[in-house]
C-alpha cells in the first residue's frame, strides 16, 4: 500500500530525514518509536504533504501513485490521514461544518454523490458514540479551547468520519488519560480492517498493548535503525534507546 524509498527531506539547510525506507501493506499496523527529535513527526508531515519541508530525494508510493506529486488535499482524497501530534485550532468553523466541508470535497473528488445532511449527522452521531464524545461538541469551533485530550479524541473522530486507507497517528496517546486511551484505542481497532493500514507513532509501549503492531521501527537521526516485531517495543521499554542508537551512530557517524 505504502512504499517509501530512500526518503531524504529537511527544512531549509537542515537535514531531518536521512534516507527512510518503509513498506506498509494493507491490513498491517506499524509502530514507529524513537527519541525526541528523531524525525517521526517530520516523516508523517512529509507523507501528508506539508510544503514547508523540502524533499531532497527518494519516493513515496501510495497504491501505485507517487504521493510527492500530489497536494495535501489530493493525498487526503486518496485515503491518507494524519492525526496531528499538535492539532491546530481553527477558529470560526464548527466541527460539524468542518467535517461537512471535508467530506463533501472528498466525495466530489472521488465522483461520489453528495451525502445528505441527515445521513452525515447520523454518521457523526454514530462515531461520536464509538468514541464516547460529549454532546454539543459538534457545534464547538474546531479544536478551539479543547483540552489536550479532547483534541486527540477529535483527531480520531475525524479519522472515523473520513475512513482513510492509511492512518498515521502521531502520538495520539500522549495527553490521553487511561480511560480515554482505551476508548481511542478501541475506536482505532474497530476501524481497522483488511483493506486499511495504520502507522502509530508513540513513545509508550502502553498504547501498543491496545493497538497491537505487526512491526515496530526505531527512528533515530532521520533513519530507521532497527525494525522488529511487537516484542521490540517491550525491549525498548526495558532498555531504552541507547543500545541501538550507539551502534547506529557508529555506523552512520
Amino acid at each position: 500500500m505504502l512504499k517509501i524509498e530512500n526518503l531524504k527531506a529537511g527544512i531549509e539547510e537542515v537535514k531531518i530525514l536521512n534516507g527512510i525506507d518503509l513498506s506498509v501493506n494493507a491490513g498491517e499496523v506499524h509502530a514507529i518509536m524513537g527519541p525526541n527529535g528523531s524525525g517521526k513527526s517530520t516523516l508523517s508531515a512529509v507523507i501528508a504533504g506539508n510544503e514547508s519541508y523540502e524533499v531532497e530525494s527518494g519516493s513515496i508510493i501510495f497504491e501505485g501513485e507517487d504521493l510527492l506529486e500530489l497536494d495535501p488535499d489530493q493525498r487526503a482524497h486518496k485515503g491518507v490521514f494524519l492525526s496531528f501530534q499538535y492539532p491546530v485550532e481553527i477558529p470560526g468553523i464548527s466541527v460539524s461544518n468542518f467535517l461537512k466541508a471535508a467530506i463533501s470535497e472528498k466525495r466530489k473528488q472521488l465522483g461520489l454523490d453528495p451525502i445528505s445532511a441527515k445521513d452525515l449527522l447520523g454518521k457523526m452521531r454514530e462515531k461520536m458514540e464509538l468514541l464516547n464524545m460529549k454532546k454539543g461538541y459538534l457545534s464547538r469551533n474546531m479544536n478551539e479551547g479543547f483540552s489536550g485530550g479532547e483534541k486527540k479524541r477529535n483527531e480520531i473522530f475525524q479519522m472515523a468520519m473520513l475512513e482513510p486507507k492509511l492512518a498515521i497517528l502521531d502520538e495520539t496517546d500522549s495527553g490521553l488519560d487511561i480511560d480515554a486511551l482505551k476508548i481511542v484505542a478501541n475506536g482505532v481497532n474497530k476501524l481497522k480492517n483488511k483493506k486499511n493500514a495504520t502507522i502509530v507513532i508513540t513513545h509508550y509501549q502502553r498504547l501498543l498493548d491496545y493497538i497491537i503492531p505487526d512491526y515496530v521501527h526505531v527512528l533515530h537521526n532521520g533513519r530507521i535503525i532497527k525494525s522488529g516485531g511487537k516484542e521490540l517495543a517491550l525491549e525498548l521499554e526495558e532498555k531504552g534507546y541507547d543500545w541501538i542508537t550507539k551502534e547506529a551512530d557508529k555506523k552512520w557517524g
Partner: peptide
C-alpha cells in the same frame, strides 16, 4: 499550520483560505 491542517482533511487550498477568511 491551519491551512495545512485543513488540507490534510481533504479541503482544497482555496476553500481552506476562504473558510479561514470567513472565520476571521
Amino acid at each position: 499550520d491551519a491551512l495545512f491542517y485543513m488540507r490534510t482533511r481533504g479541503i482544497n487550498k482555496d476553500d481552506a483560505k476562504t473558510i479561514l477568511t470567513f472565520a476571521f
